[in-house]
Amino acid sequence: MRSLQNKVAIVKGATGGLGTILTEELASQGMKMVLASTNPKKLNLMKEKYESEGASITVSTVDVTNEEEVKTLFHLAQQTYGQADILVNLAGLPSPMRIMNLQKSM
């Protein structure tokens, strides 16, 4: 298996479930990461944790339904690390059925 040391990953959906688990594993492999989520508090806590363990982490609050915010995320990776080797897209959107149920209950 090739080394992930000093490779760069963008992880969308980093603060939830599988995103958190994968971020921890990639950090332990020495990857540089741009973590993205709609939860700035969790992002900053993750940044502090992994940087205290020696990882290089950049965070960005991103709504994946906003095209400009997603473009800005990729530009951030380019500006910060010069590249992005891996994209992990775990950001979720509410299902249409769930939204319809919410509207009915309002």
Rank of each mutant, 00 (worst) to 15 (best):
K49N: 12
A9W: 03
E69T: 08
S37H: 01
K49M: 09
N6E: 14
E24T: 14
M106E: 14
I86H: 14
V64G: 03
K41V: 13
V62H: 03
L18K: 08
M1W: 01
A27Y: 02
K32H: 13
G19I: 08
K42W: 00
A55V: 03
L45D: 14
K12H: 09
M1Y: 02
V64M: 09
E67W: 05
T61I: 06
G16D: 10
D63I: 12
L4Q: 06
M97T: 15
N44S: 04
Y81N: 08
A91N: 07
K104D: 14
L35E: 04
L35I: 06
A77F: 04
L93T: 15
T23E: 07
T65D: 14
M31A: 06
V11L: 06
L26D: 04
K104G: 15
N101M: 13
S95P: 09
Q83A: 12
T72H: 09
S3I: 01
N101H: 08
N101Y: 05
L18V: 13
T23P: 11
K71G: 07
Q103T: 15
K41H: 00
P96E: 11
S37G: 02
Q5Y: 04
K41Q: 07
E51Y: 00
A77G: 12
S60I: 04
N101T: 14
V70C: 04
T65V: 09
I99N: 13
T15Q: 00
L76K: 14
P94Y: 03
L4V: 02
V64D: 06
S105H: 07
L102M: 15
N6M: 06
K7I: 02
E48Q: 12
P96W: 03
V59C: 11
V8D: 07
A27E: 06
I10N: 07
L43S: 05
L35R: 04
Y50Q: 02
A9P: 08
E51R: 04
P94V: 13
L102F: 09
P40L: 01
T61R: 10
A36E: 03
T15D: 00
A14H: 01
I10S: 06
K71C: 09
T23Y: 00
Q5S: 13
Q5I: 12
G82S: 11
Y81L: 10
V8M: 07
I21C: 10
S28L: 03
M100P: 07
E53D: 10
H75C: 12
Q103N: 13
V8F: 07
S105G: 09
E67G: 13
S105L: 10
N66Q: 12
I21S: 11
V8T: 14
R98S: 15
I10P: 10
T20N: 15
K32N: 14
Q79P: 01
P94G: 12
A55W: 03
G92Q: 10
E24W: 00
V62D: 03
V64L: 08
I86L: 15
D63C: 09
V11R: 01
A14C: 01
H75P: 05
E69W: 02
S52V: 05
E68G: 13
G82C: 11
G30S: 08
Y50R: 03
T61V: 13
S28K: 11
S3Q: 05
V11M: 02
K104Q: 15
D63M: 08
E67C: 12
L90I: 11
V88W: 03
